[in-house]
Amino acid sequence: MDMPNWQIFKRGRQATPASPSAAGRSDAEAQELQLLRGVQRGRMSDFEALYRLYHPRLQRFVLHLTRQADLVDEILDDTLLVVWQRADRFDGSSKLSTWIFGIAYRKSLKALSRLDLPQEDPQQDEQADPSPGPEQQLGHAQRLGRLKAALGELSADHRAVIELCYFHDMSHAEIAQVVGCPPETVKTRMFYARRRLRSLVAELYDGPAVE
């Protein structure tokens, strides 16, 4: 198939429709699968439509995962090029969104590895977390900036599970498919990330961590 012209899609991405409600998700997923079938047949118009649906979601995910704004466009282009070239490899064993986010996750980690940035060990702490999540402790929108600053201190693996869970509404099983690990590992990473967030927020803003 011919290579897609990214600039055409980027100029039109502001027209991306709003995210569907929970009630309309099944219809939205069916529409996405129909577009993918068109991509498998080499239809550029269907790829353009799929691009516009996924670009805003992937952009947020990749930016929050990497914390490297200058890498985002490259990673998104690499991700969507895989979707274009390897659409026939989607076997339907997961949601299409899970498959595409998984590609973006791997491309992001590969880009970060080239920067040789220090990473925390995502396998620390093997317990379940019984305490409230950081989103409950931080409160409402006026304190969201504090959470974002703390998220920047986490490893990419820990940011990924927080981002996919709280901002993309994925279950532990879906997150496990995206990041390529068992669901129990997702739970472990979630526990460590949430505990670390509480500690970081307390350290950054002189407030006591709630246990």
Rank of each mutant, 00 (worst) to 15 (best):
N5K: 14
I8S: 08
R11P: 00
R13I: 15
Q14T: 11
Q14F: 14
A15K: 10
T16H: 10
P17H: 02
A23C: 05
A23D: 15
R25E: 13
S26L: 14
S26E: 15
A30V: 06
L33T: 05
Q34W: 05
L36F: 04
L36I: 11
R37L: 10
G38H: 03
G38L: 10
Q40F: 03
R41P: 03
G42Q: 08
G42Y: 07
R43W: 02
M44A: 15
S45M: 10
S45T: 14
D46S: 15
F47G: 08
E48L: 03
E48C: 04
L53E: 07
Y54W: 13
Y54G: 12
H55Q: 14
L58S: 02
Q59V: 01
R60L: 14
F61C: 05
F61E: 05
V62E: 06
L63V: 00
H64R: 14
H64K: 12
A69C: 03
L76T: 12
L76Q: 14
L76K: 11
L76D: 10
L76W: 05
T79E: 11
L81Q: 14
L81R: 15
V82H: 09
W84H: 09
Q85T: 13
A87Y: 04
D88V: 13
R89Y: 01
F90D: 06
D91F: 01
S94L: 06
S94M: 12
L96H: 01
S97R: 13
T98V: 15
T98S: 14
W99I: 04
W99V: 05
W99S: 03
F101K: 04
G102V: 04
A104Y: 00
K107R: 15
L109R: 09
L109A: 00
K110L: 12
A111W: 01
L112S: 04
S113V: 00
R114C: 00
R114L: 11
D116R: 09
D116S: 04
E120C: 01
E120M: 06
D121G: 00
Q123T: 12
Q123V: 03
D125Q: 11
E126R: 10
Q127K: 07
Q127P: 00
P130R: 02
S131E: 15
S131G: 04
P132A: 10
P132L: 07
P134E: 06
L138I: 15
L138Q: 12
G139P: 12
H140Q: 11
A141N: 07
R143F: 12
L144A: 13
R146W: 10
A149Q: 15
A150Q: 07
A150W: 02
S155L: 03
A156K: 03
H158T: 03
R159Q: 05
R159P: 05
E163V: 09
L164H: 01
C165Q: 08
I175M: 08
Q177V: 04
Q177G: 05
V178D: 03
V178A: 06
C181R: 15
C181P: 00
E184G: 09
V186D: 01
V186R: 01
K187Y: 00
K187P: 00
T188H: 11
R189L: 05
F191C: 11
F191E: 08
Y192G: 00
A193G: 04
L197C: 11
R198F: 01
S199N: 09
L204P: 02
L204A: 09
Y205K: 12
P208E: 13
P208I: 03
P208F: 02
P208L: 08
A209E: 15
V210E: 13
V210P: 01
E211Y: 06
